[in-house]
Computed example of a mutant assay.
Amino acid sequence: MKRIAVDLHYLPTLEWFSAIIDAEEILLFLKDQYQRQSYYNRTRILLANKVETLSIPIQGRRPRLPLDQIKIDNSQKWQAVHLRGIQSAYGKAPFFEFFFPYFQPVFENQPESLWEFNSRLLTICLKLLQWPVKVSVGDTSALSLEIEDQRRHIAPSRPFSERNFYQPIAYPQLFGLDFEPNLSILDLLFCMGPEAGNVLKSSAKKE
């Protein structure tokens, strides 16, 4: 069984999913420390004129707390901003009307915990991709040489081309003449629907 330790990102990038393409189990670690300037609370979508980063506001100054203690700042009404952005970006996408209803209630439920919010969204993404991968919450003391540890590898500070997980495979997008790679999984799901999994398999770099 191939087991991979990963970070729990917000609506992860295509690189993130390409990196776990052949995993039978992924392990998430709720006691890992929250990292600023990471994908834990941000994702990227394609609007008509630009790529937009959606960021979830976090309470407090965010000292080095474990992920399960990170609380979302719901006083900023960010959910409406994110939902409006997603609708503007993908409202006319071929599979938007089929897949958006899975995501909308999670946003509207006033999530307090970043960990719980990201976990629910990941569960939906894996369901829509029809991936049977097992998702477990791990303990760092249980890490072994047989577990591939990808944590801290995928970060916005470095381009995906510097890592060995993802090679862009173009698919039809709503906006722009040039293909925009490595957006949120939402872009692929809304544009390609049931074919999203096949695109990801083709996008995974072969060792």
Rank of each mutant, 00 (worst) to 15 (best):
M1E: 08
M1D: 04
K2T: 09
A5D: 03
D7C: 12
H9M: 11
H9A: 14
P12D: 15
P12L: 13
E15R: 02
A19M: 05
I20F: 10
E24G: 14
E24D: 14
E25K: 09
Q35P: 03
S38G: 08
S38Q: 12
Y40W: 13
N41S: 13
R42M: 14
T43F: 15
I45K: 10
L47C: 08
V51M: 07
E52W: 10
S55I: 14
I58V: 14
Q59Y: 07
R61T: 04
R62W: 12
R62E: 09
R62I: 15
R64F: 10
I72H: 05
I72M: 09
I72W: 02
D73P: 07
N74Y: 12
S75L: 12
S75M: 10
Q76H: 11
K77Y: 01
K77C: 07
K77L: 12
W78D: 04
Q79E: 10
Q79P: 08
Q79L: 01
H82L: 08
R84T: 12
I86R: 06
Q87F: 15
A89I: 01
Y90W: 12
G91S: 10
K92R: 14
P94F: 08
F95E: 03
F96R: 06
F98L: 15
F98S: 02
F100H: 05
P101S: 12
Y102N: 05
F103H: 06
V106G: 04
F107K: 07
F107P: 08
E108I: 01
N109Y: 08
S113G: 12
W115P: 01
S119N: 03
T123W: 03
K127Y: 10
K134R: 09
K134V: 15
S136V: 10
V137E: 11
T140R: 08
S141Y: 04
L145W: 03
L145F: 10
E146W: 03
Q150N: 13
H153W: 06
S157H: 06
E162G: 03
N164D: 13
L174Y: 00
F175G: 02
E180C: 08
P181T: 05
P181C: 08
L189I: 14
F190E: 09
F190K: 02
F190Q: 01
C191V: 03
M192R: 11
M192E: 04
M192Y: 00
P194M: 02
E195M: 05
A196T: 03
N198C: 11
V199C: 10
K201I: 11
S202H: 13
S203L: 09
A204N: 11
K205G: 02
K205W: 09
K206T: 02
K206W: 01
E207W: 06
